[in-house]
Structures are given as C-alpha cells and as structure tokens.
Amino acid sequence: MPSALVEKYFRADKLPQIWCPGCGHGIVTRAIAAAIEKAGLDKDKVCVVSGIGCSSRAPGYLDFNTLHTTHGRALAFATGVKLAHPELKVIVITGDGDCTAIGGNHFIHACRRNIGITTILYNNNIYGMTGGQYSPTTPKFEKGTTAPYGNIDKAFDVCNLASSAGATYVGRSTAYHAALLTSLVQNGLNNDGFSLIEAISGCPTYYGRKNKKGDAVNMMEWYKNHAVNIAAASKMTPEALEGKFLIGEFKNSPEPEYTSEYQKIIDRMKKER
C-alpha cells in the first residue's frame, strides 16, 4: 500500500517509477510532495512543468496538472502558464543538463524577471537518460562517457548562478538531507518570486560508476559526510571546510514578483485611459 502522501499526491497507478535502483530522484520527488502538503496548497491550483531528462519524468508520477515539454524549455513553457494564470503555483522540475546547458538562457532570464516559479533542479552531475555524458555541473576533471579521461570544463555552481541572475529564493540540499530539502521547497513555494532549489541527487549508474563513487549507499554517505549547512559553516575554520560543500538556505530576499508587476502596469494604463 502506498503511504498517505503518495496516495494523495502521486499517480499511484504509474508507479513504480523508471529511475535506476539507488537513484536519488524518487526521494527528491517525494520531498516536493511533502513540501506541497506542508505548504497546504490546493492540488488543483498547482501546475508542474518539466523538460527532458531523468528528472523530467517526475511530473508523470505526480497527480497535479502537469506539462511535460521539450529539452531545456520547461521554464519558457512555465512562464507562459504563470502569465496566463498568475494565481497558479507553478513548479518546474528540471535537471542539470536540461536547466543549465540547453536551457541555460531560459534559466537566467526566469531568474532575472523574478517570475513566480519554484524550480527544483535535480542535480545528478551527468546526463543520465542518454547514457552518462558530462554536463555543466560535472566537476572539473571528473568523467563522463564523452570525457573518458576527465572533463576540462569548469562546472556551474547553480545556486550562485541563480542568485547572481536575480532569483529571490535560493537553497541547496541533497537526497540524503530530505527533511531540509522539504523545508527549502516549502519556503520556495512561499516565496512569490523565482525560487531555485538545487537538489543533489546521486546517479550511481553513470556518474557514480564513471567516477568510482561506490554504490548508492556510498554516495549517500558521501553527501552525509561532506555537506555542511551554511548556518554551521560560518562557525567553522577554512581547514574544517576543506573538501566540504554547502547546503541550506543561501538567499531569501523577496522582491516584487513579475506577473504582479505586469498586472500593475495593466491596472495603471486602464486607469489613465
């Protein structure tokens, strides 16, 4: 029997999902459902949009209005949904390849506009669905099927990228830190403007295997042992932070949301005519 949460928010008849054993995507997707539950959203007022890739299969399992689009373009489609129906909670589920390579342009512009879309970026550091090619978040010198001896490209820090481009809520968690992930998504949903939550999700099949990260459990342990919450990091020495990465809430600075600003122009022009 599926849990009450799964029963309520998932298309249970579509389960089990197709992700590989040990993939973190199921945990991340459940965390999104848990955040929606905690945020107390009306299911019928939520639209989940995705692009192409492993992450983008998630809306197939989620029981909301869902829109599965083309590679990299989820945010462009979602922008249309939000402008047509500003009252909807629009959630974009995307991946590192989808959002920061082919869809990178849409990403920075959605951030810049601060449009009311909550984006959860499942970052598994690889193109999983097509067989493990290196992506813009594959760490430098790590391997992919298109970089058998190591990738020389510098990886994006997607949280820094979103912050710099203008997103008003930014946070990072991992599939291991599911409770934190849930609260970040919940806060993101409560932010009127553009929110980016990076969910680091292990790909034992390609990224893990190519880079000798061990099995799914080893990858989870790595997240557990190497993630430092930003709140704790400020009290740590640079030596203690060596080799660690930050999780937690990085930015929470609300600004006027795009569709409401748009409406203000319409209202003003109607009044002046």
Binding site: Y127, M129, T130, G131, Q133, T145, T146, A147, P148, Y149
Partner: peptide, 18 residues
Amino acid sequence: FPITPSTEIPQYFSQFVA
C-alpha cells in the same frame, strides 16, 4: 549533443578522440 537514439555515435566517437 546527446539525444536518443543517436547519442551512441558521438559517444563512441569521443572514445576514439580520447
């Protein structure tokens, strides 16, 4: 750029390059 079902072509080829 990878896309099913042609992905294998650049993948095999990148191995030749490497």
